[in-house]
Design a protein around this nucleic acid. Structure first.
Lengths: 336, 336
DNA sequence: TTGTAAGCGTTATCAT
DNA sequence: ATGATAACGCTTACAA
């Protein structure tokens, strides 16, 4: 029965609850070997399982943290979550993953629920729409780490990718391969990574003396991406290269190409900002900007655990470099 | 502060804790509108957040369930987990996902930890190596549902795919396209789905009067798959078609083909048993046997919730059909 | 309609 | 070395 309690064990072993508790917490320094053995026996005779809930209530620590991802459909989110889980499991803690689905209301609900469950801390991919709640957590010094996205005007531990630099180098790669008409496609510019990717894009073009064509900058919701691409390819001078702003946009680009019978890597060069599991098996193998998902997860977990343990940490952003992995989709532009 | 408690609210509102509790549980039937308002005011003045831990301790219900997947690297596990989470979120419950990593020891540890945390029930992709523990949970009538794999000699609610039938139809598809030398590659035959897939394979060959060549049946650990494939292709009469037993085996097949400069769909036909996210973008688009991951997750969640609510359920397997999605990798065999 | 008090299964403090 | 006893923050009879 799951209902055997510490009191039962105590009775069976002929000792008090406190002694059993001592035993369970491995403080057998001042315990006679005799009682120790009796308790041990009682425990597995009764098949006793301690109730962590009760312990947590008393100790004010659940050994559980929450992860709230903005959109679980991104490979990146999955990899980061996995990494965070691994980290906490190594430290005998649990992680609960929740998917806010890019919905600020859901995000709010999850923050409240997880805190009501007394999780020891939170790692959040913020929708960035709940500024008051974030601020409040920081003010209370509740352990929290933000991931992937910077929240404006908030001084909080945050782990992000070097989006500007990474995008810059991808665009430079296009230019080095002879491209000049380069497009970028992201979801709407509501969060920092997207903004920064556009920024890196413009910076690179500028540095190379290529004038920026606003028509080549797409930033719209997923369901409108294909329409925008279509518009682009109707132009007299369509782009010869495209940077897909994340893995979901990438799917749209692929589908667009398929529908319009365009050949990725032939009709246009392509780089994707994100880790793609089958990148070297898609046709053609696709050039990607890989984020250091695993390391970022570890870093965030580490920052969180330090806060939980009341250790001092830097309340600033820490940013990780990305890696441009060149495959066939972004080969040299064909001479016309 | 997160430390405001019900008592603080009660004091501030000038009522007793019980009344506040009534309020929180929305039992305002017999509550004067006056006190109701005072409590409301006190709550948001103090920014009070209830402590679910304490409540759970009292109610013996945490509104949390655990999911223990055998190997998180499978797309299928991820999809099922997502579906289970969705289901429980709809019911205002949480799900904690743990990865046993195909290790019975880890599985055991997670079962114990989650139960110690008093989760209301468990969905397990069993390693099938902890028979005593499974049996014990069933005996105790602890709510549990097994997923993907049948545990021998255990009468327990279990949600699985129709592996035999699905494999049969894939092999039949090969045969219909003129193949006779058909191989199957799975991980070791330690769990029911793999055994059943081999069974469906043999059944289909048998039904078509093709004699079974044991050399064509690979069942070995991932790191040895490529070696076995190599052996196969050294034969005088190598296979012309391969069924990859899951998504991880599929990767090995792809890498093998790449290394040996074999063309999938040309040098040999290929079907993969599993959902592949980029199936129609790999080259060539690959024929898959898709499992009903989302529905299976829902079903399992439903069976679990019913048990939690002490409703009666069938303690048997429920099996879901798979869908053979034919793409280019398994086209008709080229005439020689 | 609201309050009192016991109890959920632990841990922590202080005696002994 | 071990035991009483009071918390932890909530729910729930039952009383008022």
């Amino acid at each position: 029965m799951g209902k055997t309690t510490m009191a039962d064990v105590a009775k069976k072993a002929g000792v008090s609850k406190s002694t059993v508790s001592q035993f369970l917490n491995e403080r057998y320094e001042y315990m006679s070997p005799d009682t120790r053995i009796r308790i041990e026996a009682a425990i597995d005779e009764l098949n006793y399982q301690p109730n962590y809930l009760a312990r947590s209530l008393k100790q004010k620590r659940t050994s559980t943290v929450g992860i709230i991802v903005a959109n679980i459909m991104h490979q990146f989110s999955t990899e980061v979550s996995r990494s965070v889980e691994d980290y906490f499991n190594k430290h005998n803690m649990h992680a609960i993953v929740c998917n806010a689905d890019n919905d600020p209301e859901k995000e709010k609900k999850y923050i409240e629920m997880l805190r009501a469950k007394q999780v020891d801390g939170l790692i959040i991919f913020p929708t960035a729409q709940n500024a008051d709640i974030y601020k409040n957590m920081i003010k209370e010094e509740y352990p929290v780490v933000f991931m992937d996205r910077k929240v404006p005007d908030l001084q909080a531990p945050t782990v992000v990718s070097q989006n500007i630099e990474a995008t810059y180098s991808a665009i430079q790669h296009f230019i080095d391969n002879g491209h000049e008409r380069i497009a970028i496609a992201t979801e709407p510019l509501t969060i920092s990574p997207r903004i920064e990717r556009h920024e890196g894009y413009k910076k690179a073009l500028h540095a190379n003396g290529i004038k920026i064509n606003p028509e080549f900058q797409i930033s719209t919701s997923i369901d409108k991406i294909k329409k925008e691409l279509d518009r682009l390819f109707q132009l007299d001078a369509p782009p010869t290269a495209i940077l897909a702003g994340n893995d979901i946009v990438f799917i749209e680009v692929l589908e667009f190409a398929k529908e319009k019978k365009l050949e990725v890597g032939e009709s246009f060069a392509l780089v994707v900002f994100d880790n793609i599991p089958f990148a070297h098996f898609v046709h053609p193998p696709v050039t990607t900007i890989a984020q250091s998902a695993y390391m970022m997860g570890e870093k965030a977990a580490d920052l969180l655990l330090k806060q939980i343990n009341k250790e001092q940490i830097d309340r600033h952003e820490v940013s990780f470099p990305c890696e441009l992995i060149i495959r066939d989709s972004s080969k040299r532009l064909k001479e016309k």
